[in-house]
């Protein structure tokens, strides 16, 4: 097992050199409503966890190169388009969403571990710092918490 920098990991993943890839994965509904990357090969962007680089290449090149993905990959791609076109929370949306998750679990291209907690650090001199709801990239980290009104009491 080798500890590498994030850049090295991303680069090795992109050039299809790794046997097993490991990284954080998962998004809230609010993000999935606008971004399809978790549902189409290679199943995320350059920065994040991917599987099936050559499936992604096949789709990006309309089959000119790469490896044709299995049928379940196409079914998930079709379903994310339907999911994003439906009103979140509606029966239609929930039905499509359940079908997508069934597909994801059945194919198990990504294996989950433990949903955890993580630390948030702030100096006590930093004022107007409110408690975050999550420690996550989703919602773009500090963006909901209005850092423009932070100030330093030094």
């Amino acid at each position: 097992m080798k500890e590498v920098t994030t850049d090295e990991f991303r680069s090795a993943m992109s050039s299809n050199q790794l046997d097993v890839m490991i990284y954080a994965k998962g998004q809230p509904l609010a993000v999935i409503l606008g971004v399809s990357e978790l549902f189409q090969p290679p199943y995320d962007n350059y920065f994040n966890l991917r599987a099936g680089m050559l499936w992604g290449e096949y789709i990006d090149t309309d089959g000119a190169s790469g490896v044709k993905p299995p049928e379940y990959a196409y079914e998930l791609m079709a379903d994310i388009n339907l999911f994003q076109a439906a009103i979140a929370g509606s029966d239609e949306s929930n039905e499509i969403g359940a079908r997508m998750v069934q597909n994801i679990v059945d194919s198990m291209l990504f294996i989950g571990t433990v949903k955890a907690v993580a630390p948030i650090y702030h100096n006590n001199d930093l004022k107007n710092f409110t408690e975050f709801k999550t420690q996550s990239y989703a919602y773009y980290r500090t963006y909901p918490y209005r850092a423009s009104q932070w100030w330093l009491d030094e």
């Binding site: 097993v20 490991i22 994965k25 998962g26 809230p28 949903k115 420690q135 996550s136």
Partner: peptide, 10 residues
Amino acid sequence: KPEISIGAFA
């Protein structure tokens, strides 16, 4: 605080 993403293997 709770994380949203989880450590995953592929």
